[in-house]
Design a protein around this nucleic acid. Structure first.
Lengths: 114, 114
DNA sequence: CCGGGTACTGACATAAATGTGAGTAAGGGC
DNA sequence: GCCCTTACTCACATTTATGTCAGTACCCGG
C-alpha cells in the first residue's frame, strides 16, 4: 500500500477516473446495475479485456460494487457505490460542457493533435 | 482532418482534457497567464518535454493561447481562451469532489490497482 | 569570448494503456 | 455426448503516454 499524494483535488479526482473509459462506465451505470455483457454492449468500442480491467480498478477504488449470482450460466452485476454516485454527480457538469461543445470538439483536427 | 465522433458529452470532454496533466495545467492557468518556465515550476513533477507537448495539444484544441514576445531572453506566455475558461469552470465540481475525498483517495491501495 | 537565462527541439527509452484472439468452467437443453 | 450461454483468463501485440538527456539560438553582462 504505497500512499500516493496529490497536488490538489483535481489531481486526486483524475487519478480515480483517469483513462478513456471510466467516465463512460460510471455514466452508463448511473441508472442502475448492469451485468457484464450488458455493460459491454452499452459501452461501444471497448474490448472485453479492457472492460474487465477497468471494472476491477473501479472496484478497488471503491467506485462500484460487484455482485455475483451463483447460477449457470453465470450472472455478475455491477452497480455504483455511494462513492461512485458522488463522483458521477461531480462529473455531470463536465458531461454537459461536452454536450454543449460537441460540434466544436468534433471539428478539432485530431490528427494534428498527437 | 479525420472527424472523430463521440458517444456522449462526457466522451467528448474526456477527449479534450484527457491525460494526466491537462486538467492541472488548466487549473494552474485559471488566475492569469504564465510563461513557460513559471508553468513548469507551478506543475510539480512534469517534464519539460511533456509540458510542451501538452501545451501544443491544448493550443490545437483551442483551450489556450500562446503569445510570443520577441525579446532576449525569449518570453512566451500561455493563457486560457474563453473555451479553456469554460472547461475549467465545468471541471470545478470535479476538483471539489477530489478535495472532499482526498483522504479516501490517498488511502486506496494504488499498487493493487494497475 | 564565456557563462547565464529562456524556450524550446530531437533522439531515444521506458512505462502505461489498450487491443486481439484464443481458451476455460459450469450446467441445461437436445 | 455436444453445443449453448456467460463471464471471464491468458498470452501476446500494438499504440499511446510519459520521461531523460543533450543540444540550439538569442543577446547581455562581465
Amino acid at each position: 500500500m504505497k500512499k500516493r499524494t496529490f497536488t490538489c483535488g483535481l489531481d486526486a479526482a483524475i487519478a480515480v477516473m483517469g483513462g478513456k473509459w471510466k467516465g463512460l462506465i460510471l455514466f452508463t451505470l448511473q441508472d442502475g446495475p448492469l451485468r457484464f455483457g450488458e455493460l459491454r454492449r452499452a459501452v461501444p468500442g471497448i474490448s472485453e479485456r479492457v472492460l474487465i480491467l477497468q471494472l476491477r480498478e473501479m472496484e478497488t477504488t471503491g467506485l462500484l460494487h460487484r455482485e455475483v449470482y451463483h447460477q449457470v450460466p453465470p450472472k455478475v452485476e455491477y452497480s455504483l457505490t455511494e462513492f461512485g454516485h458522488s463522483l458521477n454527480t461531480a462529473m455531470a457538469s463536465l458531461g454537459e460542457w461536452g454536450e454543449e461543445h460537441v460540434e466544436r470538439i468534433e471539428a478539432i483536427p485530431w490528427d494534428q493533435v498527437g
